[in-house]
C-alpha cells in the first residue's frame, strides 16, 4: 500500500532569499521586496502595505526634527549594574556586547531639538538596545529630560519603543516607573505640554509609566501597546486573543490613544499640536 501514501516532502522554511549586499529588504508584513534606498526615503514604511518597520532613534531624529537641530544631552550615562546581575551570562558582559554591537550607549537618547522652528526636549527610545528595556539609565535620562523641559519651558516629547522594565536591574528598574512618573507630574503642574508617542512595541513598565501619562498620546499604526505581553495573557486566560488585540487601533477604540498617525504625517501632526499649545488667546 505504499503507493497510497503521498511522499511527504519535508517543509522548507520559506525561502530566505539571500539579498545581495543588503540592497533589498523584504517587508515583514506583505513580503514585498523593496529597494533599500527607497525604503530609507520612505522612513521605513512599506510602499505596498504601509507596514511600519521598527526603526532606530536616528531615523526619528531625521523624521521629526529640523535639520541639524538635535543636540544630545547626557550621552555618557551608563548602567552601573547595581545587582552584579548574572543569568546565563553576566549582565555587564551582555551590556558591553550590546554597546559594541549597536553603537548605542543605552535604550534611550535624549536631547533638545526644533520642530518647524519650535524648541522641544525629546527622549527617543531605541528597541535595538536590550529590547528598549527601562533600567536606571533610561529612568535617569528621562528624568533629566523632564527637568530640562521644565527649565527651558519647552514641550516634552517621549517616543517609546520598549518591551518594559529591565529585569537585570531588578527593583531599580521598577522604581524608574515611579521616578519618571513623579517628574512628569511636576511638568504637568507647571503647565508644560507632554506628547507621548507610542511605537511598536510599547509594553510593560514603560506603558505603565511615562508612555501612558502624556497630555496627548500618538501611536503609530498597528503598534503593539499593552501592559502584559500577549503570550502571558493567552496563558492566563487559556483562550485565543481577539484579532488586533493590543494594537494601536484596538487601544484607541478602548480609549487610551488620542491619535493614530502614519509615520509620514507624524511631524506635521506634532508641529500643529505645538502651534496650538503655544497659541495665546
Amino acid at each position: 500500500m505504499d503507493w497510497f501514501k503521498r511522499k511527504k516532502e519535508s517543509l522548507k522554511a520559506a525561502d530566505k532569499k539571500e539579498l545581495p549586499d543588503g540592497l533589498w529588504e523584504k517587508c515583514e508584513n506583505c513580503g514585498e521586496i523593496i529597494y533599500k534606498k527607497e525604503l530609507e526615503k520612505k522612513y521605513y514604511v512599506c510602499p505596498k502595505c504601509d507596514h511600519h518597520f521598527r526603526i532606530g532613534y536616528e531615523v526619528y531624529v531625521s523624521l521629526l526634527f529640523d535639520k541639524d537641530t538635535f543636540t544630545e544631552f547626557n550621552a555618557n550615562i551608563l548602567s552601573a549594574d547595581p545587582l552584579n546581575f548574572k543569568d546565563v551570562k553576566k549582565y555587564s558582559d551582555k551590556y558591553k556586547a550590546t554597546v559594541k554591537k549597536t553603537g548605542l550607549k543605552e535604550a534611550v537618547v535624549t536631547g533638545s531639538a526644533k520642530i518647524d522652528g519650535r524648541e522641544v526636549v525629546a527622549a527617543l527610545m531605541d528597541f535595538r538596545f536590550l529590547g528598549g528595556s527601562m533600567g536606571s539609565v533610561v529612568g535617569e535620562k528621562i528624568s533629566r529630560a523632564v527637568d530640562k523641559a521644565l527649565e527651558l519651558k519647552a514641550p516634552l516629547i517621549i517616543l517609546s519603543s520598549s518591551g518594559g522594565a529591565r529585569m537585570h536591574e531588578g527593583i531599580f528598574s521598577l522604581m524608574q516607573m515611579a521616578k519618571t512618573s513623579a517628574k512628569l507630574a511636576r511638568l504637568d503642574k507647571a503647565g508644560i505640554p507632554y506628547i507621548s508617542i507610542l511605537t511598536n512595541p510599547t509594553t510593560g513598565g514603560t506603558t505603565a509609566s511615562y508612555a501612558m501619562l502624556g497630555d496627548i498620546h500618538i501611536a503609530e499604526p498597528k503598534a503593539l501597546i499593552g501592559f502584559a505581553g500577549p503570550r502571558v495573557i493567552k496563558q492566563t486566560i487559556g483562550q485565543d486573543l481577539p484579532k488586533g488585540f493590543q494594537r494601536s487601533e484596538f487601544v484607541q477604540e478602548h480609549g487610551f490613544i488620542d491619535i493614530i498617525a502614519h509615520r509620514h504625517e507624524l511631524k506635521t501632526k506634532i508641529s500643529k499640536l505645538l502651534e496650538f499649545f503655544a497659541h495665546k488667546n
Binding site: 516607573m177 515611579a178 512618573s181 513623579a182 512628569l184 507630574a185 504637568d188 503642574k189 506603558t207 505603565a208 509609566s209 511615562y210 508612555a211 501612558m212 501619562l213 499593552g226 501592559f227 502584559a228 502571558v232 495573557i233 492566563t236 486566560i237 486573543l241 481577539p242 488585540f245 493590543q246 478602548h254 480609549g255 487610551f256
Partner: peptide, 26 residues
C-alpha cells in the same frame, strides 16, 4: 502582580497603574 487578563488590557491596566504613580507622587 497586576492581573494579566483580556479585560484588564481593554480597560487600561497600564494607564491605571501609571496614573496612580503620577498622582501618588503629589
Amino acid at each position: 502582580g497586576a492581573y494579566p487578563g483580556l479585560g484588564a488590557e481593554e480597560r487600561g491596566q497600564a494607564e491605571a497603574i501609571a496614573y496612580n504613580l503620577f498622582a501618588m507622587s503629589h
